[in-house]
Design a protein around this nucleic acid. Structure first.
Lengths: 365, 365
DNA sequence: ATGAAAGCGCTAACAA
DNA sequence: TTGTTAGCGCTTTCAT
C-alpha cells in the first residue's frame, strides 16, 4: 500500500467514542483549562482506548508552525560540524523541535535549499553554518528567524554565534612565544574562510605584541587536509630552515606537518614545535600528543539552537552576539626553543597575555 | 510576528491573477499533461509574478505523504554514523526526500522517537541504525517502510543493510596468520553489539581454519574507546607475554593499544603487530600508519536510503539483504612475526583465504 | 464549559 | 481541457 497510514484514529473518532465534540478533544490534548475534570477523564479514556495521537502535519497546517528547525551545513561528517549539530539537536529536542540537517556545497545550492526549507516546508527557524567569504558567502533570508554560526562578526547578520578565533590563535602564538620561539611559521586554512582570517589576525597580533616583524613568507595556505599540512611544512622548512615552531590552523594539518617534519629528519617537538587548532578526537593519541587550541563545538551548537529558540519565543532583539572562548591545551608537540633563554621570552609572553574577550556571556539551560 | 509566513501567495492568488481556477494551477505545478499550452503559460506567468511556491505542508496534508525520511541513530558524531547519514542523505535528496536524523540513547527513547516520527509526523519511511543486542535491541514498527543498518542478520527484520563483519574480521586474522603470527590477541568491542559477535566469529573461524585452538583468555572486551584499547593491551600482554599480534575491533582501540605497547617498551610492528577495523580518517597518520579493515560507511548509508526508497515506490519485497564487503588495508602497524618462517604461514593463510561473501550484490545509481 | 462553523493550502474525484 | 465540490485533521473563531 502506498499510504500505510490510512488507519490512524482521528480527533473525531475519539470525540464520538467519548460522546463529546471533536473540539473538546482538541482542548484536552492541548491541555486547555476550560474542560471539566469529568469530560477530560472521559476523553482521556477514549484517547487511550484508540491509541490516538494527534497528527502533527494537520497541526502544522492549522497553527502555521512546524516545530521543526533546519540546520544548513557544509557537510555532516566533519567532526566540528557534526558536533555543532549534535549540540543544536539536543536543545532543539528539549524544546520540542526536530532538527533537519541539510548539507550544501555552494551558494546556488544554499539558496535553493533555504527556500525549500523556509518557504516550502515552513521550518520555524534556521541555523546556518557557513564560514565562506568567497562566492559561497551566504545571505540569510529575512522573514524567518535565523542564526549564523560563523568565524567572525558580519555587518549584515544580526544573530550570530562564534568562536573567539582571534583570541584562540593569540593563545597559540603566545604559548609558542613563551617557549622562546621567534621564527614561527603558520599553516593557515583557506583564506576564503572567515575563521582563517581571524586566526591570522590573532596570530600576527601576538607576534607584533612581542615585537616580531610579520613575515608573510612564513604564512602559507592549506586546505585543512593532513596532506596539505604535510606538503606545506616541507615548503616552509625549505623556505626558512631556522623555523622552530609552526602554528597550524587545524589539527589535521598539524598532524600532516608532524609527519613531514619527521620525514625531514626533524624531531617534534625537540627540533620543531607544532601546535594545532580544534582539539579533535584522538588528538592526544598522535605521536607526539598534540598541543592545540580547543573549541567547544558542542556548546557552540547548543548556543545556536538556544538563541534561535529564544528568537522564536519572543520578538527578535536587535542583535545578539554569542562569542565562546577557545582554550589552549598543552600536550607534547610543543617544547622550548632550543638554545633560547626561555625565561626571557616567558616575560614577553606574560606581558602580552590578555584574558579572552567575551562580548556577551552565554548561558544555556 | 509569531508567524512570519502570513504573506505567502497561495494557489488561489495565482488562480485569480491568471484568471483560471485554482485546480488548473494545481495541474500546472504538478506537471499534469491535460493543460493547454496557453493556459499553462498564463499560469506560469502568474506564478513567476507572485513568486508563488507550493506549500509543502498543505501538500502533505492532501496527499498523505511528507517526502521526509527519518534516520534514527545512536549519535551524530561518530564518524561511521555521520558518514552513513551523509550517504543516506545524498540519495534521499536526489529522490526529493529530506532526511531527518535523530539520535537516541536507549530503547524507551527509541520507541518514543519512532512513534513521534512515524505516527505523529508521518515520515514516509525510516532508517534505523542500531547495533545493540541487549535491552536496547530495537524492534521496527510495522505499518511504515523501514530498513535496519546492522551488524548481522536478524530473523525479525526483513529489510537490512549490513557490512560483512565476519569476513572483514576473517581478512584481518588471515593477514596476521599470513605474517606468521600464532599467538593473536583480540580486543573486541562491547559484546552487546552485533558486529562484535560477527567479528569474533570471523576471527575465530580464521584461526580455527589455520589449526589454532581458540583461547578465550586472549579475547577481551573494550568499549570502542582508545582508552579501553590502552588498558586492555596492557592486560593482554600481562596475561600472555608471548603475544605477537592484536586484532582490535576498531581503529580507536587499535590506536590506544599502540600507545600502550609503546609505553610497555614494545615496538609496533616489530615486536607486536596491531590491526584495527574501520579505516577511520587519519588512520594513515598515526604512528605507525594503521593496518586496518575498511568499511565503506558512505556506501552503506546510500544502500539504506536506496533500499528504503525502493520500498516506498513499489510494494515491499518479502525481504532484502544488502551485504557490503569489507576490505583489508595494509599499512605499517603489522609485520611478520619475528623468528618465524613466514613462508610457511603464508601457505596456511593462502589455503584458508576465501572470497568475500556477497549475499546479494548491490548497485546504487 | 461545550459545540458549531470556518478555514489552513493543497489534491482528488467528479462534473461540465 | 477546465471548473466545482469535497475533503486531509486539526485549530480558531464565535455562539451557546
Amino acid at each position: 500500500m502506498t499510504r500505510p497510514g490510512a488507519k490512524h484514529p482521528t480527533l473525531r473518532d475519539v470525540a464520538s467514542l467519548a460522546g463529546v465534540s471533536h473540539q473538546t478533544v482538541s482542548r484536552v490534548i492541548n491541555h486547555r483549562p476550560e474542560v471539566t475534570p469529568e469530560t477530560r477523564a472521559k476523553v482521556e479514556v477514549a484517547i487511550a482506548q484508540l491509541g490516538f495521537r494527534p497528527h502533527a502535519i494537520a497541526r502544522s497546517m492549522a497553527q502555521g508552525r512546524t516545530c521543526t528547525l533546519a540546520c544548513l551545513v557544509p557537510n555532516l561528517t566533519d567532526f566540528t560540524y557534526a558536533s555543532n549539530m549534535e549540540g543544536a539537536e539536543s536543545v532543539a529536542r528539549a524544546h520540542g523541535y526536530y532538527l533537519l540537517s541539510s548539507p550544501f556545497a555552494d551558494r546556488p545550492q544554499f539558496d535553493a535549499l533555504i527556500d525549500e526549507l523556509a518557504v516550502d516546508r515552513r521550518v520555524d527557524g534556521v541555523i546556518v553554518i557557513s564560514p565562506y567569504l568567497d562566492e559561497r558567502r551566504v545571505a540569510l533570508p529575512d522573514g524567518i528567524p535565523a542564526v549564523l554560526m560563523a568565524g567572525c562578526l558580519r555587518d549584515d547578520i544580526k544573530q550570530i554565534v562564534l568562536l573567539d578565533n582571534r583570541d584562540g590563535a593569540g593563545q597559540a602564538a603566545r604559548h609558542l612565544l613563551a617557549l622562546g620561539h621567534r621564527r614561527i611559521g603558520q599553516i593557515a586554512g583557506p583564506r576564503a574562510e572567515d575563521c582563517v582570517q581571524e586566526r591570522d589576525l590573532g596570530f600576527l597580533d601576538a607576534l607584533a605584541d612581542a615585537g616580531i616583524q610579520p613575515d608573510s613568507s612564513l604564512s602559507v595556505e592549506g586546505d585543512w587536509s593532513a596532506t596539505s599540512g604535510y606538503e606545506l611544512l616541507k615548503l616552509l622548512v625549505a623556505r626558512e630552515p631556522k623555523l622552530t615552531a609552526i602554528f597550524a590552523h587545524n589539527d589535521r594539518m598539524a598532524v600532516g606537518a608532524i609527519r613531514a617534519a619527521r620525514d625531514l629528519g626533524l624531531r617534534v617537538p625537540q627540533d620543531l614545535s607544532i601546535i594545532g587548532f580544534d582539539d579533535m578526537p584522538l588528538a592526544s593519541y598522535f605521536d607526539p600528543p598534540l598541543t592545540t587550541v580547543r573549541q567547544d563545538t558542542f556548546a557552540i551548537g547548543r548556543a545556536c539552537a538556544s538563541l534561535l529558540i529564544d528568537l522564536l519565543d519572543s520578538p527578535a532583539p536587535e542583535s545578539t552576539i554569542v562569542r565562546l572562548a577557545a582554550e589552549l591545551v598543552v600536550r607534547q608537540s610543543t617544547a622550548p626553543a632550543r638554545g633560547k633563554e626561555v625565561a626571557e621570552f616567558a616575560k614577553i609572553a606574560a606581558q602580552v597575555t590578555k584574558p579572552p574577550l567575551m562580548v556577551q556571556p552565554f548561558h544555556y539551560t
